[in-house]
């Protein structure tokens, strides 16, 4: 599966469109990381526990999107966009969407 943020795939032509595909996941921070992050919040800087957590979640969202795309028979997803929203204190939704296409 080819994934791009472009309108197409360089060097290939789009033969068929399958419409929008999406994948999302809602993740909560775990308590151990939360306490550590609380301490880190006093001095500022990167909260690497959360960076990893969200990266994992994003990969999950991408995987779900790819799964949906492969069900339709696509071999690439173009124009991918990400969005993150905090739906409650301590939980975030990570969302990935794009257009499933067949390229040759």
């Amino acid at each position: 599966m080819i994934l791009t943020t472009l309108e197409g795939v360089p060097g290939r032509t789009i033969v068929r469109h399958y419409g929008i595909v999406q994948g999302s996941t809602v993740r909560a921070k775990n308590i151990g990381k939360d306490i550590l992050a609380g301490f880190k919040n006093l001095v500022g800087g990167e909260l690497s526990g959360y960076t990893d957590l969200l990266q994992e979640a994003r990969q999950e969202a991408i995987n779900r999107m790819v799964k949906e795309a492969s069900h339709t028979g696509a071999n690439a997803v173009v124009n991918i966009r990400f969005a993150t929203s905090a739906i409650a204190a301590g939980a975030a939704e990570i969302f990935a969407y794009g257009t499933a296409v067949y390229v040759e």
Binding site: G44, E46, I62
Partner: peptide, 22 residues
């Protein structure tokens, strides 16, 4: 689109926090 052999999605991310004073 520019010519290319291969195209891959790349992501860079960071979670950053302010300190207590700020």
């Amino acid at each position: 689109l520019p010519e290319a052999h291969e195209a891959t999605l790349v992501v860079g991310s960071v979670v950053i926090a302010s300190d207590f004073f700020r």
